[in-house]
Design a protein around this nucleic acid. Sequence first.
DNA 1: AACCAGGTTATAA
DNA 2: TTATAACCTGGT
Length: 283
Amino acid sequence: MCEYKTSSNSVEIISADYFDPEQIFTCGQCFRWYEQPNGSFTGVAHGKVLNVEKRGKNIVFNNCNEQDYLKIWKNYFDLERDYGKIKKGLSADPIIKDAVLYGSGIRILRQDFFEALISFIISANNNIPRIQGIINRFSALFGEKLEYNGDVFYAFPKPEALDGIKESDLAPLKSGYRAKYIVSAIKSYLRGEIDQKAISEMSAADAQKALCKISGVGPKVADCILLFSFGKFDVFPTDVWVKRVMGELYGCDEKDARETGYRIFGDNAGIAQQYLFYWRRAQ
DNA sequence: AACCAGGTTATAA
DNA sequence: TTATAACCTGGT
């Protein structure tokens, strides 16, 4: 999976297995990637602009040198994980088989913690176009300016750039009642109240409890952060769509969806959730 | 006009 | 411990 060749300003992964840019970037796990006229995707993560292009069986990372590939993108795209094995295990359950097949090229991105924290707080009771707009305005206001192919991009703001921020400073975001949660989360982050290393070593249940102490972070947002930033696969982010699909496929009550998913899918609950979410939303 | 969208929080039974 | 209402904003 990690065989690659480098060119002047790009890295090409040879025979990339289970890597479909369209599915990865539109399955709902991230908010800052946009499809280009040629079908590739451009986005910003970890302070860099990247373009991802599918070329036959290969995947090309444009605007990328070998060092960035090894230090940033290889980890970001979770390239060391064997998704074939995971999917084989999940597909033993005939009920989820179609969903796994449908989202066959999904990979779980390993996103920056601070970005995931703020982004998923914003996502609460919100819709995707608005979430993207709010995050873009936030980045344009406080993030580093970047350029690629003559276009301007903004990195997600670094926490240090947000020191002393007030709720009124966020008015241009139009994030509504979430503004106070954003400010509160930034402050507790800057005060060092969130021990990232400790959370990464906790069980999923303990980690969820720890994150829920942050105002604006509830069980669902916490699970999203644990899955999409910490790479904890034994969580089951349960939003309205997942509640819906779990009821339809497994006959459970909506309030038991999370517990049911965790029980059935165990260590692969997180990726199972993503297959189910992506499949159900496409219907 | 009323309702909805990747939920969370505050309040009450 | 489990249920219900209120919540910014923008689109239908």
